[in-house]
């Protein structure tokens, strides 16, 4: 039944929301520029290039230079959105992100396209599942992984207005829009997707709708699961995690990323130091074998069934 409902829901490509929003912002603010590494197509920036050719800086296939140029554009008073495949942006240019963006504190927006395992069969070189761990270590960068097209647009708008370095993780996997009334995007504040009292599922990005469906299945089995959309993983909304630990006593984290150093890592670090509760982390254990996105999601438990199972494991670990 849930599957049928899910299939009936319309899904959207977040990249379209990112591109349309950036074009709107750029029309209103001439300081906004885009910097790419031959990634106009993969960043959906063809429209931006056509409308603002002078403000599209394509440095070619050269990620270190791309990020350094972004910092320089910020020095020159521009608001650069540096957009490239997440794997190359964060991996190849990590020292530039550390020194030129985070440490120097320039107002640069890093936009990781097709993150996680979006490139499926292309393999671990093209997956970006380490990005949370790498960038979460670089304090000043705010890391946001929008969960759907609406939130993507809101996050892009917020990033443009925010004075400071940001990493946006823009998925190309089509996802449904979360059905939450009166939504407001507040960076650094978890969004409560569903209330519950037995266990809390903390998800972000492409996995939030899966977590919500898993919670619906759990509810039918008499288990009350809270679902939080932790779109901002750095800085982490520690208050929301603390409430989850205190009020539900067990936590599951779900992310399209490595289970070490990302959302699960952040939640485990915080809870173990302050409010120890069982934490089950759903994500990828390391370099992925060959497989499609659907295959890898299913195989590694990023599914309604896999998340529900993780919730049961967490519940079973509750003391007493």
């Amino acid at each position: 039944m849930a599957e049928a409902v899910l299939q009936a829901r319309e899904t959207f490509d977040c990249r379209k929301a990112w591109a349309a929003t950036l074009e709107d912002l750029a029309a209103a603010d001439t300081r906004i520029v885009a910097v790419v590494n031959d990634s106009v197509g993969s960043s959906n920036l063809g429209g931006f290039r056509d409308k603002f050719p002078d403000r599209l800086v394509n440095v070619g296939i050269a990620e270190q230079n791309m990020v350094g140029v972004g910092a320089g554009l910020a020095n020159g008073g521009r608001i650069p959105f540096v957009s490239a495949a997440a794997c190359f942006l964060t991996g190849r240019a990590l020292e530039q992100i550390k020194a030129d963006v985070a440490y120097a504190g320039f107002n640069v927006k890093l936009v990781g396209q097709s993150p996680g395992i979006a490139y499926g069969e292309l393999g671990a070189t093209h997956h970006s599942i380490e990005d949370y761990a790498w960038l979460r270590a670089l304090g000043p960068i705010t890391i946001v992984a929008p969960s759907d097209a609406w939130e993507t647009a809101e996050a892009v708008k917020w990033a443009a207005a925010h004075d400071g370095p940001v990493y946006l993780r823009i998925s190309r996997m089509k996802v449904p829009t979360l059905e939450i009334e009166n939504r407001v995007f507040t960076p650094g504040k978890a969004e409560r997707v569903r209330d519950g009292s037995d266990v809390t599922i903390i998800a972000n990005g492409t996995t939030v709708h899966l977590a919500d469906n898993a919670a619906a299945d759990l509810a039918r089995a008499g288990i009350s699961a809270r679902v939080l959309n932790m779109h901002t993983i750095a800085p982490l909304d520690e208050a929301a995690v603390a409430r989850a630990a205190e009020e539900t006593g067990a936590i599951v984290t779900v992310e399209e990323a490595l289970v070490r150093g990302g959302l699960g890592g952040a939640v485990a670090e915080f809870t173990s130091a302050t409010r120890p509760v069982p934490v089950e982390r759903v994500g990828f254990p390391g370099f992925m074998p060959t497989g499609s996105v659907d295959y890898l999601f299913g195989e590694f438990g990023l599914s309604e069934a896999g998340i529900a199972e993780a919730a049961r494991r967490a519940l079973n670990r509750k003391p007493g």
Binding site: V33, R55, G68, G70, L73, P80, E95, D100, A104, F106
Partner: peptide
Amino acid sequence: ETNTGPLGHGFPVALGIAIAGQITGA
């Protein structure tokens, strides 16, 4: 103007500053 130390960082940043000037006509 920018944090340097690891080599090969200042030149790309300077390039970005110069591009900003080119874009704006500064």
